[in-house]
Design a protein around this nucleic acid. Structure first.
Lengths: 264, 264
DNA sequence: GTCTACATGTCGCTC
DNA sequence: GAGCGACGTGTAGAC
């Protein structure tokens, strides 16, 4: 069971000690603070004073959340070094979260600190994500008939000059078939990507006919326009069907959790 | 001053009431919970049981954070509808966060709930981001001499077939000059982008000479290689100088806060 | 470190 | 609302 400490209506100097201790002992820290925030690094920003929620995680991840919006207004990833001090002049708690590479700094100046929560959380549950582009690619590679014709898979993630071809196959007539997979609606950039691969291949293969297929659940009209113009093809795929195949495959292999490795 | 309520070691049925009340009255809610999580939508995921931090914001933004990592393991943006209920069978608190479009659902099943914090936060401080690519572009457009020669700005964000040209100018000799701006180190993709724009322009302009310039604080060696090969140019820009110009410009306009509009 | 492409990307703008 | 390009994108893999 999680160990949780609650500190309410703290004196700022006490807060410094509690924050330091929490960071040192790698606790998860949640703070409600009246503060302003500055950020310097790849860009820079300034957030004027207001009441916010601050999270400091056990690995040094640092988040400042306003009362609305799902993304933090300022943050620092898990590699950062966090320093807490007290500014006697201004009578404020200064929290600096520093990231080495790229060199970036978030500075929080706290004037009031109504609440600090420190906790130790036990969390070793596995996390599984399904229907990534990689999964679609693997299912189609093993079951190229899902593309609606008789195809033989030659290569996966084939390297060509400017990048990687998702799927490289041959059709019944011996034509090379290049497939670009998109998990969501394919847009013009997907068609451009496919076009780029085919042009790169042509340099090496001379006059041989190369077919290009976009495999995606749907395609934007602009993308379809370019596709037709370039004499490329679109093959609609059904993600539910893909997922069924992925499940079956995993079952055959006797894997308990049917997909992926959990991120812990 | 922020109004903060602390609820420790709650009975699960009590927790349901407090969560419902907090959501109804648009409070900011922070929960430490032992839970498992499922997500269905554009993708799908399953997180096995463990102790996590849950944030529900006043606008319905919903975040589940593990003890490490700066990004939430599951989330729902601010448009979502949040429902809290008690499952009598399993004796668990069920929190459903539902987003209408795209249709996505996060389901949290809570078996223990050591802590709930509800709060009302006053946060109207403005937020300013400095030195975006847009700002660099605007400063260079108004002060093209910063590019180190006598230039006249013709257009900003000029539309060409595959995208937008950051800056479109003419030099002393009447040549067209196309500038691609990068806020950070320019890489090969920036050079390819510039090349693409110039090729698109050439289709419309025939034999006229078109110069291409990458304007960035620095450039990678690979990018520079391609640049030389394509007879394009690199012009180093100094972000501090750009920022000074941006400030001055804003001052001249009599704008109090010298950059951007604050997000409230 | 750079290049490449994916992501429940998200954000903001235009049409 | 769809389409499209930018982002403190972040992230993972390859060289």
């Amino acid at each position: 069971m999680a160990k949780v400490n609650v500190y309410k209506d703290l004196d700022l100097r006490e807060a410094v000690e509690i924050l330091r201790e929490g960071i040192k002992s790698k606790k998860n820290i949640y703070v409600i603070a009246k503060c302003d925030v500055e950020y310097f690094g790849r860009s820079s920003s300034k957030l004027e004073e207001g009441e916010r929620q601050i999270i400091i995680k056990s690995d040094g991840a640092f988040l400042i959340h306003r009362p609305t919006g799902h993304s933090p207004v300022n943050w620092q990833p898990e590699t950062s070094y966090i320093d807490v001090s007290f500014d006697e002049e201004e009578e404020k708690v200064i929290i600096k979260a520093i990231r080495a590479k790229p060199r970036e700094t978030v500075i929080v100046r706290v004037s009031e600190i109504p609440l600090i929560i420190t906790s130790i959380l036990y969390d070793y549950g596995a996390f599984y994500m399904h229907v990534s582009e990689r999964e679609i690619r693997d299912v189609l590679a093993s079951n190229p008939s899902l593309l609606g014709e008789d195809l033989v898979t030659i290569d996966i993630e084939k390297k060509v000059e400017p990048g990687f071809i998702d799927l490289y196959l041959r059709d019944k007539r011996g034509n090379v078939v290049v497939v670009e997979i998109k998990r969501l609606t394919a847009r013009v950039d997907a068609v451009r990507q496919l076009k780029k691969y085919i042009e790169a291949l042509k340099k090496h293969m001379g006059s041989e006919r190369i077919r290009g297929i976009i495999a995606a659940p749907s395609i934007t009209s602009k993308a379809n326009e370019l596709l037709l113009k370039e004499k490329l093809e679109f093959k609609q795929i059904n993600l539910k069907v893909i997922l069924e195949y992925a499940k079956k495959k995993a079952e055959r292999r006797g894997i308990l959790e049917f997909l992926g490795k959990g991120k812990t």
